[in-house]
Amino acid sequence: MRRRDFLLGTVPLALAATGARAIGPRSEVGVGRLKHGGAWDQRPEALRRLLWEAGKRTSISVARDAAVVSLDDDTPEGKELFWQPLVFLSGEGELPPFTARQRARLERHLRYGGMLVIDAPSAADPFTAGAKRELAAMLPGTTLRALDGEHVIFKSFYLLDGAVGRSRDDAHLYGVDVAGRAAVVLSTNDLLGALERDRFGTWRFDCEPDGEAQRELAFRLAVNLLMYATCLDYKEDQVHIPFIMKKKRR
């Protein structure tokens, strides 16, 4: 079938489904918030906000809130780790080293299909170095590489030019590939900082330098990460490529 023929007469997706919910909490898409020995809970509301936004913007049936998970295997949070295919690791300042057992659990999670998003306040924050240290110890032989603007994460739902967060110091995300997918993604723009609201609905941090427009882009990137976690490289299927190329040219 020719590409043109394939596309003619199709039904626009905009005429799409009504919203729906999964049948049971485990069928809802949630995220894990990784509890660690450092300042792990500096953005306590961000992921709840992300899930809410994703539920509003996409067809994903989302969980109400993020689940706290840990790398210990003898706690309820530890047992929750493998029920959360997408886990966020965030913090500020020093990241105390994981134990060998903790590293093994996280590595097993990633190798069997899990995904870890590391959100650092900035590239200079000691948390970034600590996270890189743990990745090197946990996934020896792998490389943390820059994900350029063509990576599927930047087109999994929104078409984005690069990475943003509360800051936009680095347009790149960084990733570690495991079995052909970005199992680990590192942001150094304080992505969760842009999503964080207090209980009164006020944004806790200003986005620099572009304010609310930048915050919107941060939400879009976060939604894209969630979409990548659930659809993987769907947007790199051959059928999508001509559409995305066309839209990007405009």
Partner: peptide
Amino acid sequence: ILRSTTDLTNAGNRELSLIP
């Protein structure tokens, strides 16, 4: 199906990677 009729994407169609 990445978006339903009730979803509010806050973006124009050109900013989305959706296809028919």
